[in-house]
Structure formats: structure tokens, C-alpha cells
Design a binder for these strands. Structure first.
Lengths: 223, 223
DNA sequence: GCACGGATGACAGCTTCATGACAGCTTGGC
DNA sequence: GCCAAGCTGTCATGAAGCTGTCATCCGTGC
């Protein structure tokens, strides 16, 4: 799950990125509208966190342009003050949610989870498949009732695969979902590595990650 | 589905070719306009990815010439900067879509799929024929509800045959769709081989691949 | 029956993937 | 601020299976 954070105050952006990173999101930071446009054109995001006050314009313009261009990526707007007018304006222009600054990082994470979950067409964060019980919100994973510890990257990968259950996911796609631009130089072998680690932890759960040579990976129920 | 990538930056071209190859497209790369003209004259393409800035001229000239010559091959233009003028100009000259560089490979794949799909007159990527259920996007194939695994080449061949369902496809056409120039030395027997492999996997689906001696193959419903 | 195009099984080469070991770095506890 | 523990990603090696060639057999039309 890749998130774009459009925010010129680097403290806030960094903190959000770090916090969301911990929660399993891969974040890119854009300090200006120009950067944001460039990033959004380059790659697709699961959601965009958008500050309204930016050095080269207002986030509302960005949002409006995006929506007019047919982009439906969920957008969470950050408003500096509790201004009803601004809030309503942003929502009218296509924002999916808003948060008043200063905000709590956990709150941001929770709301993004709601937005990205809606995108994937799931009704709740918790997914049960076979004897697998995965809660993206609590980042908890259970296999046959027993808690299994998994690292951030492993959970991110699992989340991606589950969101695209039954579909063959090309390695590039998984790579994009797990790593932001800052990690662009990570070897693609890494995906294979994490698939192997995940498989070990999912063994006996009735859920398998199939390899489709030359195509990608697919998660589904065994059999 | 054969794609011509007209792009002088070899990194970009190679990456796109690799990614699209995974997605089931066979790609040829032309680093100059002269190469592009040569390739386009030699063989037909399902779509052309066209960079505008090339060492021996602008892609717009190429595009205009092609359209004047009656060539309707879908063209996706790559523009270096977010210049509305350039974008509109290209669209006016007959481009079917555009993408701003640097672009995301998934985006490129998705858009090419739209362009080539439109060509084949299909409304969505998913096709159901008899008890066959084929989704070009998810690269998934089902026969009578059961998932059937197929390799990249098999899927590419199936995609071609389905896109031209009911029509006799000459072996050369299939060959061109499956292999780019880089594999030009592959024996034509290979097509027969993959037809045989596909037939095995499609058996009992109500869909057959008929042989028309000296003419080619035709996919259609049985009976 | 003969010739030619096509079908198909077997196989070797090669790409792609799996996985264990390891070093660097991050994180959290004290 | 230090230390320990564990997460991360690289590398190397070996396995797996996709790919295309070859040889042989089939079947169709003349």
C-alpha cells in the first residue's frame, strides 16, 4: 500500500511517514504541489494525504484537477484550522476524509486504513481465509488460532496479496507496493525473499502463495 | 499482442519492454524515428508507445505521417514534461492516449490494455466463452470453474486467439504477436507446439482451436 | 501411395525462483 | 548513550520448470 504525503512542513511529513511506515504503508513525501503532481503522474497510490496550504498553491486546486482528470484515488485532507467552510469545500471537491491539524498519528493511520480498505472492497480490516486470521488494523496475524509474529514488510506483503487475492500479482507491482521511491535501488530478489519468509509463517493455514513463473505470485486458498 | 516502443533512452525502453513482456505483450524497441518507420512498415502492431523527443526528429512527425498514410494503430504518446500544449497537440494529431514521463509501468500496462482491448471491440478484460473464463488483466484462466495454470506464452497465444475469435489467424500473425524481433530466429514449429499445449489445457471447455491447413488457426466455440 | 503440413513426445538449455547464511542497520530497553 | 536483539536486504548456490529444438508420427489431399 503506497501513500503520497503532500505536506511542506518536513517535521510533520517525516513523522507521518515514519508512523505510517511502521503501520505497513510505503510513503512518498511531496513538499510542493509540483512535486505532488509529478509523483501522482508517475505512480499510483492507495491514498493521498493532502495539506491545503502549500508554498506553490492550495491543495484544493490539486484535488480538483485530479478529480477532473478522472483520478479516484482516496484523498485525506489536512486542514490547519477548524474551518467549516474549508472543510466542506474540500469534501465538495472530492476529498474522502479530513483531519484537523495538529492531529494524532494513530488517527491518521486509522483513517487511511478505512480509505484504503474501502478501495479494496473489503468491509472490515479483519480477513479470515482458511485458518488464517489477519487484522490489518491491529497488524495481527493468527494461524489456526495461534498468534504468529510477522515483521512490517511481511505484513505489508501479506496485505497486498490478500487485497488482490486470486489475482496474479507481478513482482514489480508487489515491489512498488512495498517500497517507496527512496528504496528504489533495492534488489527485486527481495520480493522472493519475503515471499519465502511469509510462506513459512503461513504454512498449515490453508492459504498458499503460488508462484507463476515469469508472471508473478498469487495468494489463494489451498486446493 | 505486439507493441512497438519508440524511445531512445534504453533504460526506459528496456524496463517497459520487460514489464510489458510479463504482462503478455511482445515488444520491439526502436531508438530512432528511422527504426520506428522500418519496424512499422515491416510488421503490424497492436499499439505503439511513442516518445516525442527522439534523436532524429519529433515523434509528432512520425505520428502525423502514419495517420496520413491511413495507419490506425493505437498510439500512446510519452511526453517529457507536463505541457498541456504538447499534450493537446499530440492528441490532435491522432494520439489515442498520453503519459507523462517519468511514468509508472503499471499505468503503461493498464493503458495499453485499454487501447488494445478497444481495438478488439471488447468491453472488459474478462472473457467468457463456453466454460472458459479468461481474465487478461489478472492473467487468470478457468475452465469449468477450475483454475488452470498457463505460462506466459500460452496466455499470450490465448489472448491473441480470443481477441480474433472466429477469424482464421495465419501462423505468421500468431508468431508476430508472440515474439518480437529479438526472437526472430525461433522456429515456426513453436506455434504448433503452443497450440497443442493450449488445446490440452482448454479440453472440455467447449472452446476449440481449429486447424485450417495452409491458412492458420481459428478459435471458436465447439460445434 | 506419396508428399506435405501439422501434431506431439522427449529433452537440453536457460531463465526464473527458492533459500540459507551473513553483514549492516534500526529499534527498543536500560 | 550504550548495548542487545531482531529486522533488512545482499549474495551465492542449487532447484524448478518454462522454452524451443528435434525427431517421429499422423492425416489429409492429390
Amino acid at each position: 500500500m503506497r501513500i503520497l504525503i503532500v505536506e511542506d512542513t518536513s517535521d510533520v511529513a517525516e513523522a507521518a511517514s515514519a508512523s505510517l511506515g511502521r503501520a505497513g504503508f510505503a510513503c512518498d513525501i511531496a513538499p510542493t504541489l509540483a512535486d505532488a503532481r509529478a509523483c501522482a503522474d508517475i505512480t499510483g497510490y492507495a491514498a493521498i494525504v493532502l495539506d491545503l496550504n502549500l508554498p506553490d498553491g492550495t491543495g484544493r486546486d490539486f484535488l480538483r484537477d485530479r478529480r477532473r482528470g478522472g483520478d479516484l484515488t482516496p484523498v485525506l485532507v489536512l486542514t490547519a484550522q477548524f474551518s467549516v467552510e474549508e472543510r466542506v469545500g474540500a469534501l465538495n471537491e472530492g476529498a474522502d476524509d479530513y483531519l484537523v491539524k495538529p492531529f494524532d498519528l494513530r488517527e491518521l493511520e486509522a483513517r487511511l486504513r478505512v480509505l484504503t480498505r474501502r478501495e479494496a472492497g473489503r468491509a472490515e480490516n479483519r480477513v479470515r481465509l482458511g485458518s488464517l486470521d489477519f487484522d490489518a488494523g491491529a497488524q495481527s496475524l493468527r494461524v489456526g488460532g495461534a498468534a504468529v509474529t510477522a515483521t512490517r514488510r511481511e505484513l505489508a506483503l501479506l496485505n497486498l496479496l490478500i487485497a488482490n487475492r486470486g489475482r496474479i500479482m507481478p513482482k514489480e507491482r508487489l515491489f512498488d507496493g512495498l517500497f517507496g521511491f527512496e528504496n528504489a535501488d533495492v534488489g527485486t530478489n527481495t520480493i522472493e525473499l519475503y515471499v519465502a519468509r511469509l510462506r513459512k509463517k503461513l504454512s498449515g493455514s490453508g492459504v498458499v502463495i503460488e508462484t507463476h513463473r515469469g508472471l508473478g505470485y498469487r495468494l489463494d486458498l489451498d486446493g
